[in-house]
Design a protein around this nucleic acid. Sequence first.
RNA 1: UGGGGCGUCGUCAAGUGGUUAAGACACAGGGUUUUGAUCCCUGGAUUCAGAGGUUCGACUCCUCUCGCCCCAGCCA
Length: 588
Amino acid sequence: MEEKNTKGHFIQSIIEDDIKKNKNNGNVTTRFPPEPNGYLHIGHAKSMCLNFNMAEKYNGKCNLRFDDSNPAKEEQKYIDSIVSNVNWLGFDYKEKPLFASDYFDKLYEYAVQLIKIEKAYVCSLSADQTREYRGTLKEPGKNSPYRERSIEENLDLFKKMKQGDFNEGEHVLRAKIDMSSPNINLRDPVIYRILKMAHPRTGNKWNIYPMYDFTHCLSDSIETITHSLCTLEFEDHRPLYDWILNELGTESHPQQIEFARMNINFTVLSKRKLKQLVDKEYVNGWDDPRMPTLEGLRRRGFTPESIKNFCNTIGISKKQSRIDYGLLENSLRNDLNEKAPRRMGVLNPLLIEIENYPEGKTEELDAQNHPQNPEMGTRKVIFSKTIYIEKEDFMEEPPKKFFRLTPDQEVRLRFAYFISLKEIIKDESTGEIIKLICTYDPATRGGNAPDNRKVKGTLHWVSAEENIEADVNLYDRLFIDEDPEYGVEDFTENVNPDSLKILTGCKLEKSLCNAEPGKAYQFERLGYFCLDPKLIPNTSNNKKPVFNRAVTLRDTWAKVVEQKQQEKRKKEKALIKQKAKENQKKAP
RNA sequence: UGGGGCGUCGUCAAGUGGUUAAGACACAGGGUUUUGAUCCCUGGAUUCAGAGGUUCGACUCCUCUCGCCCCAGCCA
């Protein structure tokens, strides 16, 4: 059969062309190269999906390689977290994780080789001087006075750098390219610097560490990577990547291809900014469920499938883009709609007493765990004389199209009975509704009326006599503007002050007492929730379980309400304006 | 003209000289439903940043203009 519709993005086209031309003997090898200086976020997931998918699709492999050439910033804890994230997402890097630091010896030899062919030299300019000599974007730089040192002197100096004979900053090794290049990366870039600090993996073995540009291309080459996929900001580095491999004449010369990094509205995706949110305590750590980090998303209730699906949906291109946050939510809903067992929980409880239900009686009613998938089975829910429903599911003076409980509107309690209102009990001093007295129709057990009478609304509910009490965290977008940088000097000014709402005293159906941490359940009509893995009752100070809402259900009624509110606000604003005008007229 | 890149529906994104300009999400309308969920239909770019040009024919080729992003770490 013809395979016509498999043409994907531009990188895939390049790879397919290469295979056709039998470049690299038709092999495809990619790599995912994180620097262990922070936690992974959803943007990294995009890169992983790209690299691992391409490898898998063309029967190649994808290495997990840590780009750990700067011990000043890197830590073992990040390595551990990253490995765990990659495993969680289910990506297969075949062997073990690889490390650029494993190649430090080879890299050193390559540097020596560059010196020997007079393509590298030890420069003894200070950092400040180096900057001055570099020139600017529009003006060329000038040659370092150390540029013409002899091979012997360079070799000797470089060896001494390695031995630790010099202090940090005294010398660097530079590639000898072109100080007048319009591409600043080619103006004799530093390729080795003295750093007298322990490395998480090589300990105190080295006093010098290679820079990214030198490390990356050679690591790729050592691993015989065929396609080295990276983000757009490295486009300007590609000439350097190629220069190094060409000068060294490496057998393997991978092709660097750049694609646009991911942006999502209402959030930030840069390690630096995420760190600020953590450090300034806008969130509670890197794994706060509001964070777009993989740790955060996981704790929030995102599944690996939903994340991978999202990444595969948004595509690959070279265009700066800002993806709608709703798309991420949607991919979660799609996944969880199929997988998540249904449960009932009342977030803002309103007590109901069923007048004609026998005192002390309880019943176990059957409830489906999934409306479309009978294989997921049923469970028992306890019904009793007093129950809770959601406060928002009752209105004394309802607007049009309000399908829930009202003084003259019967409703169905899901899997249970039809009930109608008898009396509203209010607090005399505040006027607040404290209880509803209702009657039920015993003939409607299970939710079906024998006389076929219809009700417009079906409400979720929980027995007031047997339930579990929990705290529930509701999360909203982290920023108030879709562009966190919009209209402010510092993006933290746009942090949404209501991004976390903690609800206490929520009532959940009893079966949720064996909820698995991190596993998502759909609380019917409310959204998908999971037991916070960090706050499991009896394993920490918390006595009550804490559930996180991963995402709401799509809610067309909420949309209608919101639209009405907005219209109302507009009208009010218009009224205020009109009055102001009238006052102005009166004034003179 | 310092260099490098990018501009196709509200948001992503296919399209590589002849297509009715895919698809997803969002949006609007309708149907099913014991979740106002899910599911199922239906609708929408006379137009591809703009202006010229080449061509029988251009989103696709050429020219110019406009707009946006990245680069002056001994970070990656």
